[in-house]
C-alpha cells in the first residue's frame, strides 16, 4: 500500500514537472520575474531642492555647474522693476563621486562668501528584493566670509570668517510624483556680532516635490529655525517654485524670502518677510556635464 502511494506520488510529480515545463510562459520558467533590489532614483531633479540640499545625488562621473540667481525684493515696485534691477548670485560646481557621495564648492556675491561641502548617504531608499523605506544622507559644509572686518580695530582671527553646518537628510520618494524630506540642521558660526547671540543655531528643514508632468515639478523648501528664536528682522526661509526640465538643463524658477544661497546665509540671515511680499524672484540654472564615460556602453 505504502509503495503504491509512493508510485502515484512519483508519477504525479513527474507529470507536474512535465506540465510546468510545457507551460507557455518560458520567461517565468527561467525565473525572470523575480524582483531585484533596486535603488529608488530621481526623487528630485537635482541635488538641491531650491536652496537646501536634497536627498538626490549626482551620478558618479558627472559635474553639475549651477548658477543660482536671486533678484531684488518684489515689493520694491516698479521703480526697481519689482526687484529685477538687482541681483545676487551663487556660482557652484558640484561633483558626483560615487552613487552616494558628492562634493561641491560655490561662491556667492552675498558677503563674498565661499562655501564647500561633502554629502554622503550611508542609507539609500531601495525597493524590490530588499526594501529600505528612506534615504539618510549626511552633509557637512563650511563657509568663508570674504567681506572686510566689521571692526578692524580689534584683533581679528582668520577663523572668525568661518562657519560650519551639519545636516541629516531623511528623505523618501513616496511615489513617482511625491517626494518629501526632513532636514535637521545645525549651523555653527565662529564669530557672532553680539556676546548674547549664540554661536549654534538649530533648525529643521522640510522640502518636497510634487511632479505635475514629466518635465515640470512643483517644489518647496522651508527651514524652521528652532533655537535660538529668531531675532527681529529675521525670518524662517521659505522658497516655492517650479522645476522645468529641458534637454540638458534644469531650470528652477521660484520665489524666496532669502538672499543668501548657502546654508549659513539662508538659515541664519533671511531678512525677507513673506507677509509683506518682501520676497525675491529667483532661478537656478543647472547644467550637468559628463566627465567620465560609462565604460559599459562602449561599442562591442
Amino acid at each position: 500500500m505504502k509503495n503504491t502511494t509512493l508510485a502515484i506520488l512519483i508519477i504525479f510529480c513527474g507529470l507536474v514537472s512535465n506540465n510546468a515545463m510545457a507551460q507557455d510562459d518560458l520567461l517565468k520558467m527561467v525565473g525572470e520575474d523575480k524582483p531585484k533590489k533596486e535603488r529608488v532614483k530621481y526623487a528630485f531633479k537635482s541635488p538641491r531642492v531650491i536652496n537646501s540640499h536634497s536627498m538626490e545625488f549626482l551620478n558618479p562621473g558627472t559635474m553639475d555647474f549651477r548658477i543660482l540667481h536671486r533678484f531684488g525684493q518684489l515689493n520694491q515696485g516698479y521703480k526697481n522693476f519689482f526687484g529685477l534691477d538687482q541681483a545676487s548670485m551663487r556660482m557652484g560646481f558640484d561633483f558626483g563621486i560615487l552613487h552616494n557621495l558628492m562634493a561641491g564648492i560655490g561662491r556667492s556675491t552675498y558677503r563674498k562668501e565661499v562655501d564647500g561641502y561633502i554629502k554622503y548617504a550611508p542609507i539609500r531608499q531601495t525597493k524590490g528584493a530588499r526594501v529600505m523605506p528612506l534615504t539618510v544622507a549626511l552633509v557637512s559644509g563650511m563657509t568663508l566670509d570674504g567681506t572686510d572686518w566689521a571692526d578692524p580695530v580689534r584683533k581679528n582671527f582668520y577663523t572668525s570668517r568661518l562657519a560650519y553646518y551639519f545636516q541629516m537628510i531623511l528623505g523618501r520618494k513616496f511615489s513617482e510624483s511625491f517626494t518629501l524630506q526632513l532636514v535637521p540642521t545645525m549651523v555653527h558660526k565662529n564669530l557672532v556680532p553680539l556676546e548674547t547671540t549664540p554661536n549654534n543655531i538649530y533648525a529643521l528643514g522640510v522640502g518636497g516635490r510634487i511632479k505635475l508632468s514629466k518635465r515640470i515639478a512643483f517644489t518647496w523648501d522651508y527651514t524652521h529655525v528652532i533655537k535660538p528664536t529668531l531675532d527681529s528682522g529675521y525670518y524662517h526661509p521659505l522658497s516655492v517654485g517650479f522645476d522645468i526640465e529641458t534637454g540638458g538643463h534644469v531650470f528652477q524658477l521660484h520665489f524666496s524670502n532669502s538672499t543668501g544661497m548657502n546654508e549659513r546665509a539662508f538659515i541664519t540671515e533671511t531678512s525677507g518677510n513673506w507677509a509683506k511680499a518682501d520676497i525675491r524672484f529667483g532661478f537656478n540654472l543647472s547644467r550637468v556635464f559628463q566627465l567620465k564615460k560609462n565604460k559599459n556602453t562602449d561599442s562591442k
Binding site: K41, Y42, N59, P60, G61, T62, G96, G248, V288, Q290, K293, N294, N296, T297
Partner: peptide, 9 residues
Amino acid sequence: EFDRALMQE
C-alpha cells in the same frame, strides 16, 4: 546604460 548619466535619467 548610456554614455551620459543624464540621458539615462
